[in-house]
């Protein structure tokens, strides 16, 4: 079963178009949305949550169309964290517990205070005085404490220091120990996504460039650096994309189509993604 199904999703505003986006998030997995600033990641997430009306296409979340009436109730099962946390500025963590208790029927007070403790968040400090990292951690603590089946996170780890990011990724990792739990998260920090995602969906300038299992991507592709004369010895059908640099070529190749004699760089997800869109000189 898929926890999110997106089919031919399209939305235009003026000079930007998110075009024909299609992907599935299988239940129990983590899908990472990658793309530059303005690629359309946040637009995609807003369209999925139906806070933005799509021009075309279909979305179903946990088996329910996001246009149906049931979707409103379903939101109790979806934890959403956006890149900015919005809580009333004068409230502290304790006040927020009292309010959420009334909003979410599955609100779990114990789990909320556990997360507060785990994230070393203060109980009585008001929200206005929180740092950015604390605000994000509070949002995540809230999103996890009403027992959602699906987490949707938009740039939730951006702007945080590496220690906090790692802590949060650990929490996400633990969340998906349950096979009914899934996560869709967007980020432009590719190394974060490489750490925890099962699948990667790459959007560039509003277009879907690839959806693939992360480890398969790393197994299938590699980056090779070559001089011009060496480039000709490379089988043509192995080349996915080549970029001219000042002193030679950087080539994204399919590993199984090249001779073992070529020196393959130790390739990270970031290298593959960057080389797919980088402009040469």
């Amino acid at each position: 079963m898929n926890s999110i199904e997106v089919k031919n999703l399209t939305k235009s505003f003026g000079d930007f178009t998110l075009k024909d986006l299609s992907f599935n998030v299988p239940s129990g997995t983590i899908m990472g949305l990658v793309g530059e600033n303005g690629a359309g990641k946040s637009t995609a997430i807003k369209l999925i949550m139906n806070t933005l009306k799509a021009d075309n296409g279909e979305v179903s979340v946990l088996g329910v169309s996001n246009l149906s009436k049931e979707f409103t109730n379903l939101k109790q099962d979806i934890g959403v964290v956006l890149d900015e946390a919005y809580f009333p500025e004068v409230l502290n963590a304790k006040n927020i517990n009292n309010i959420m208790k009334l909003i979410y029927k599955n609100w779990n007070e114990d789990s909320y205070f556990e997360y507060i403790k785990k994230f070393s968040l203060p109980l009585t400090k008001i929200f206005k005085d929180f740092s950015r990292g604390m605000k994000m951690k509070l949002s995540i603590a809230v999103a996890l404490s009403y027992n959602p089946k699906l987490l949707i996170l938009d740039e939730a780890t951006s702007g945080l220091d590496p220690m906090v990011r790692d802590e949060i990724l650990d929490v996400f990792n633990d969340f998906t120990r349950d096979e009914n739990h899934s996560i869709l998260l967007s980020s432009h920090i590719i190394s974060d996504l490489e750490k925890i995602c099962d699948y990667i969906c790459f959007i560039h300038k509003g277009k879907l460039l690839l959806v693939e299992e992360k480890d398969l991507l790393l197994e299938k592709y590699a980056v090779i650096k070559l001089a011009k004369n060496q480039l000709e010895t490379l089988p043509k059908d192995s080349i996915v994309r080549k970029i001219r640099t000042s002193f030679g070529y950087e080539v994204l190749v399919q590993k199984d189509k090249i001779n073992a004699a070529f020196r393959v760089e130790n390739t990270r997800l970031e290298d593959i993604i960057l080389l797919m869109v980088k402009e040469g000189v």
Partner: peptide, 13 residues
């Protein structure tokens, strides 16, 4: 699932 999560690698893998 637990092995994947403990090793921090993909469930599919």
């Amino acid at each position: 699932r637990n092995l994947a999560k403990d090793l921090r690698i993909s469930v599919i893998t």
